[in-house]
Amino acid sequence: MDVVIDNLPRYLDGFSKTLTLLAASGLLSLLFGTIVAAMRISPIASLRWFATAYTELARNTPLTLVLFFCAFILPYFGVDLDYMILAIIGLSYYTSPFVAEALRSGINGVPVGQAEAARSLGFGFSQSVGLIILPQAFRMTVPPLINVFIALTKNTSVAGGFFVAELFTIGKELANANGDAVIAILVGVAMFYLAITIPLGLLAVQLEKKWVVAR
């Protein structure tokens, strides 16, 4: 336990890097994911195909390979960026199709009858989407989205294998430096991750329970 307290500044350093990764790639993947989801439900066929191909490609590539591409092959082609930024690019690329799927399934989850009812009451496109569909889709989308971000939190640890000194790397270095207290150090690292993932998980379950029953 003393080891953890003694090295608290380093832990916090790594934790802030992890949070930066999470926030930056979370926002970016939310942005790209929304675009991809819009493309997938758009009436324009070629955009739909592109979005489908992108989703399948990104979801079936291991994150390690994606981050390897960002950390080794992009610099080899002359892309000169900080490893942190490269990792954010890789994580956003990997996460955005999951965001898109969550959004899409939320919209698909609203029964057709809702839209039909809105249309038969004389609502136009913007009214039925804005007042009827999206408010319901949003409820069904938020819990899965939270789950995507929980997965992203855990995935930031993979960036630790590619020159980003976040929580996982700090844990590895501390464990190498203090061979006699490996368990305490790694449990300390796990606690920092749990401090993000468990509250988010509880929130998702709570929201889901509340909203599914209300429907």
Binding site: K154, N155, T156, S157, V158, G160, G161, F168, G171, K172, A175, V182, I183, L186, V189, A190, Y193, L194, T197, I198, G201
Partner: peptide, 19 residues
């Protein structure tokens, strides 16, 4: 189960490897 599900698999691999 909450503990296992809440932490990265990579960290668990490192833990098992070192401990």
């Amino acid at each position: 189960l909450e503990f296992i599900r809440g932490m990265p698999v990579l960290l668990m691999m490192l833990f098992i490897l070192l401990v």
